[in-house]
Design a binder for these strands. Structure first.
Length: 436
RNA sequence: GUGAGUAUAGCUCAAUUGGUCAGAGCACCGGGUUGUGGUCCCGGGGGUUGAGGGUUCAAGUCCCUCUACUCACCCCA
């Protein structure tokens, strides 16, 4: 090929190829999670990658809108790649009006034009479950419990789901005299507590509110990680705040009743950036690998679906970051070998043995084994066997001139190195016996 | 988006103060064994040293730009 016309192979930043080991690992993670969710009564759906832009914009906050992959299609329509699976679900509910409560799961790629970093990609797989049309605390508890169960089924135990409540957080800030316009800034600062520490966060909040003493009290209170009961003694909540607290306590109580108490924790510093959350919110960190960020998070969004239809439809959901989990499992050495080796390799020792090889392959597959014909029939038997061994096949069926002329094949056990000459018409029976 | 660092064969890494420095191991291919693997021995292919400029008699080695990756901030799945 001409060097000038050769195209440099390259990949967009934040996008990845998935080679067999990784893809198989990912698939196994997905299957385990799906099985768990189905056991909770969730049903699968799928939606298009591309949506009209106005379906997506205005749901994620100012920053979120900027991260949309947005463009004009060939028909000059303003379209965007989906940013998450929750907003498309809201659209689906408004268009299809499923029987409520509607419990669905969806595993699909989403796209965000963020700067890639560790565990952060521009195209990544989310696994979402949501309950639409159900009030707290039952549905909230159910998605959290299902999420925890899924993580455990995947082989992850070392995590904590931190829960909070948007309404509660707002009420707490009100009681500290933080005006509505400043709340967002303050929340953002509180979110940094774990990394930045009390002093730094106090300073940040003082800068936005102007009151050092208030900032200090608030920060120390949040940093003290009070329990929900403790909180109501520390802070004078208004009616809204008390309702929110009751709701959160209800959800956490149900989680404990389900035996998930060890995996959850109330954390007033959890805020979540997405605009559409209205109630309980949660975020999950791997305790030994916090660098991966949140691996499972979500919350209640009672207003979102109403944006697509005349009535309010309450909903709550959770997103699992499949890619992060696969990466974390790999880093922790918890990924088992996910090769799916072919069980039987048919080796033809020359072009003349090719037709018999195809006949043999059919017999082997009919006997219940996965089987392929080695394509390098021109290569020496040594190379063919070497290749087969590397692939980890259990048996090789060898076809040479002698065997073919006599109606035989050589069946070689690649594990122990023994082999026998088998009559072609007996091969199916010999294999069938061996494979149960 | 901001700051710092890294960038040599498919992979992991070498190459004194800029001067045979373009290498090793693994992987791959071939031979030793004219029809038999996972060991061993021998040999081979493969890199315009991320890209593009510049300094110099001479640059992988110094300078600039770009790109990619890593880490922190930010944000989150």
């Amino acid at each position: 090929m001409n060097k000038q016309t050769q195209i440099k192979p390259r990949l967009l930043k934040g996008f990845r190829d998935y080679m067999p080991p990784e893809l198989l690992a990912r698939r196994s993670v997905i299957e385990r999670a799906a099985r768990v969710f189905e056991s909770f009564g969730f049903q699968p759906i799928d939606t298009p990658a591309l949506e009209y832009s106005d379906v997506l914009t205005g749901k994620y906050g100012e920053e979120g809108d900027k991260l949309l992959y947005r463009f004009r299609d060939n028909g000059d329509r303003d379209v965007s790649l989906r940013y998450d699976l929750t907003v498309p679900l809201a659209r689906v509910v408004a268009m299809h009006r499923p029987v409520m409560p509607f419990k669905r799961y969806q595993v699909a790629p989403v796209w965000r034009a963020e700067k890639p970093a560790k565990g952060r990609f521009r195209e990544f797989l989310q696994f979402d479950i949501d309950v639409v049309g159900a009030a707290p605390p039952v549905a909230d508890a159910e998605v959290v419990i299902a999420g925890i169960s899924a993580l455990r089924a995947i082989g992850i135990e070392d995590f904590k789901v931190r829960l909070n409540h948007r309404g509660l957080l707002n009420a707490v800030l009100r009681s500290f005299g933080v005006s509505d316009t400043l709340q967002e800034d303050v929340i953002r600062s509180l979110d940094k507590l774990e990394k930045a520490g009390v002093d730094a966060v106090t300073e940040m909040i003082a800068k936005t509110t102007g009151s050092v003493t208030q900032a200090g009290e608030l920060t120390r209170m949040v940093a003290g990680m009070p329990g929900t009961a403790e909180l109501s003694q520390l802070v004078k909540l208004d009616a809204d705040g008390q309702d929110s607290l009751d709701e959160l306590q209800g959800v956490m109580g149900l989680c404990r009743a389900a035996g998930m108490g060890d995996y959850i924790r109330f954390d007033l510093s959890i805020a979540r950036g997405l605009d559409y959350y209205t109630g309980v919110v949660f975020e999950t960190q791997l305790l030994s690998m916090p660098r991966f960020g949140s691996v499972m998070s979500g919350g209640r969004y009672d207003g979102l679906i109403g944006m697509f239809m005349g009535e309010m439809v309450p909903a709550v959901g959770i997103s699992i970051g499949i890619d992060r989990l696969v990466n974390a499992l790999e880093e922790a050495g918890l990924l088992k070998s996910h090769d799916i080796p072919v069980e039987v390799e048919v080796l033809a020792m020359g072009k003349d043995m090719l037709e018999p090889a195809f006949a043999v392959a059919t017999i082997v597959r009919d006997a219940g084994y996965s089987c392929e014909i080695y394509t390098g029939f021109h290569r020496k038997l040594k190379a063919q066997l070497s290749f087969s061994a590397k692939k980890g096949v259990k048996f090789c069926v060898i076809l040479g001139p002698d065997e073919v002329s006599q109606g035989n094949v050589v069946l070689r056990d690649m594990i122990n190195g023994s082999q026998q000459v088998v009559r072609l018409d007996m091969l199916g029976r010999v294999l069938g016996g061996g494979n149960g």
